[in-house]
Structure formats: C-alpha cells, structure tokens
C-alpha cells in the first residue's frame, strides 16, 4: 500500500529540494510559479476563467460602490426586465438584482473561502498526524475517515443547519467539518512518502523535533498538492452552500447568497424567469473557474500528471 503511493511521484521534484535542504525552497517556489504562469498562458480556458474570477471577486468586494441599496424596496418597479439602470432587472420587491447579486457573491465567496481554509487546515492536520505517526493512530484516524466518508454528509449538513439555524461562521464550520476527508487522504499519502526522504531523515538525525520537521520540512514540500486541493475545495464549498441555501437551510435573512436568491427566484419563475438565470450563472462561472484553475495548478505543479 505504502509502496503503491510512493511510486508514481516523480523523483526529480523532491530531489531538487533535498540536496541542500533549506535554501533551495525559494528557488523551487519561483520555478513553480513560472510553471503555473506558463500553463495558464498555454490554456485559453484557464486564462478566461482567471479573468472572470478576478472580475467576480473584485465586483463583489466593490459592491458598496453600487448606487442601489441591496435591501431597498421599490414596489413600483418590481420584476423589471434588465435595462441600463438595472442590468439584471429587479426582483419581486423591486430591489436591484445586480446589486443583490454582488452582495450575494460576497456571502457565497466568503463561505467558500473560509470553509476551504478550515477544511484544508483540518485535513492537513489529520493527514500529517496520520501519515507521520503511523501505527495505531493512523489506523484509528483512517477508520474514522472511512466512517465520515460512508455517510451521506450533505444530509447531515442539512439536518444540522435546519435545527441549529446557524449564522455564517457556524455554517462555514459545518460545511468544513464534512469536507476535510479528501485533503486528509492526499496529505497522508504525501506525508508517508516525504517522511522517508533523505532530507527528513537527515533532519531527524540532527535531532530536529517532530513539530519542526512537520512544519518546516514536510508541509512546505507538499504545498502544491494542498493548493490544488484548496482550489477544488472552494469550488465544492460554494456548491454546497448554494444547494443548502436553495433548499432553505443555508444563509438566512437578511443575508442573501446566490443560492438563496435562486430559492426566491424559483417562486417567481412564472413571472420573471430571468431572476433564476443570473445568480446561477454566477455560481457556475465561479465554481468552473476554481475547478479549471485547480486542474491547471495540478498539471503545472505535479509533473507526474503530464503525459
């Protein structure tokens, strides 16, 4: 099992780091960055995704510049079709849909980003401990992981959200505690292979503490895998959040996210189907961008994938 995990990793990637163990890390990072840039330029879809993602993030961050208040009713002007004044039209209460979509984006992106942070942190801790310590600890943690993975997690997230009626931070945490398993598996496999490398063995022989070995030597060397997992994890968290909010168990009033806007749009579908189009399109583009960029990062940073 351990051998199977070790073998596909191209030796060159770690050898470069391992010769003089500490100083070359920076050089490695720079070449990684340039490889990512090259991969981005070679892939038109990825470039488009990067640009769209930057636009959506910037627009959501700058939502306060909009002349409209996202919660301002204007009942004379409800369900208006898109126009210059209201690029996405207005909703059933006459609120400017474009502004609401931008504020909704803030919520969706925030949930996505912080869920990713928590789940990647959790996964990294479980994965490194499991892979580094091994033995009974590893077995226990992996059995636990198997259990969490064999459970319909989305269902549990729904039940918790339905009854705890959480605010944003709690919801972020709930999404995260059910999505760290993938990261933990990857990190565990990488830790198991890294801990046998010469530079880690050398550090051990020099009397370096386990803590320092993990944080100074092991985690930095699998940063590329973690970054890839993080990008894909944001995508998944945004999807989870939007599904939850769409079902009515997610973001609650007065907050709105893309998902909860769609929940509302569903009830207005007979009157203005366009309301259902825009927020979903934004989710699609955002999630697509994180997925595509995650894959580009993966192929740029993990040479073994390229064939």
């Amino acid at each position: 099992m351990e051998r199977a995990v070790n073998s596909p990793i191209a030796p060159g990637r770690f050898r470069r780091v391992s010769q003089p163990p500490v100083q070359t890390e920076v050089a490695y990072d720079r070449s990684a960055l340039s490889r990512v840039w090259a991969a981005l330029r070679a892939n038109r879809l990825a470039m488009v995704c990067l640009v769209l993602m930057i636009i959506i993030i910037a627009a959501s961050a700058l939502a306060f510049l909009s002349p409209y208040d996202p919660d301002q009713y204007d009942l004379m002007n409800k369900l208006a079709l898109p126009s210059l004044a209201h690029p996405f039209g207005t909703d059933d209460l006459g609120r400017d849909y474009f502004t609401r979509a931008l504020y909704g984006g803030r919520v969706s992106l925030t949930v996505g980003f912080f869920s990713m942070l928590v789940s990647v942190a959790l996964g990294t801790v479980v994965g490194t401990v499991s892979g580094y310590v091994g033995g009974a600890v590893d077995m226990l943690l992996m059995r636990f992981l198997d259990i969490v993975m064999s459970v319909p997690t989305f269902l549990l997230i729904i039940i918790i959200n339905a009854y705890v009626k959480p605010g944003l931070p709690t919801m972020i945490f709930i999404i995260a505690i059910f999505s760290w398993m993938g990261v933990a598996r990857i990190v565990r496999a990488e830790t198991m292979s890294l801990k046998e490398r010469d530079f880690v063995l050398a550090a051990k022989n020099l009397g370096t503490s386990h803590f320092v070995i993990i944080f100074r030597h092991i985690i930095p060397n699998m940063s590329s895998s973690i970054i890839v997992a993080a990008s894909l994890s944001i995508a998944r968290a945004i999807l989870t959040e939007s599904s939850l909010s769409f079902l009515g168990f997610g973001v609650r009033l007065p907050n709105a996210s893309w998902g909860s806007m769609l929940q509302n749009a569903q009830s207005q579908i007979l009157y203005n189907p366009l309301l259902a189009v825009f927020p979903g399109l934004l989710i699609l583009i955002t999630v697509l961008s994180f997925n595509v960029l995650g894959d580009v990062l993966r192929s740029a940073l993990e040479p073994r994938i390229i064939k």
Partner: peptide, 14 residues
Amino acid sequence: YIGISIPSFWFGLI
C-alpha cells in the same frame, strides 16, 4: 468542466 461545476438545482430550474 461545466458538468462538474453546474449547481444541479440551477440546471433543473433552467
């Protein structure tokens, strides 16, 4: 890519 990124409920609405 679209298939893994599209929110299923939105695809349903469309």
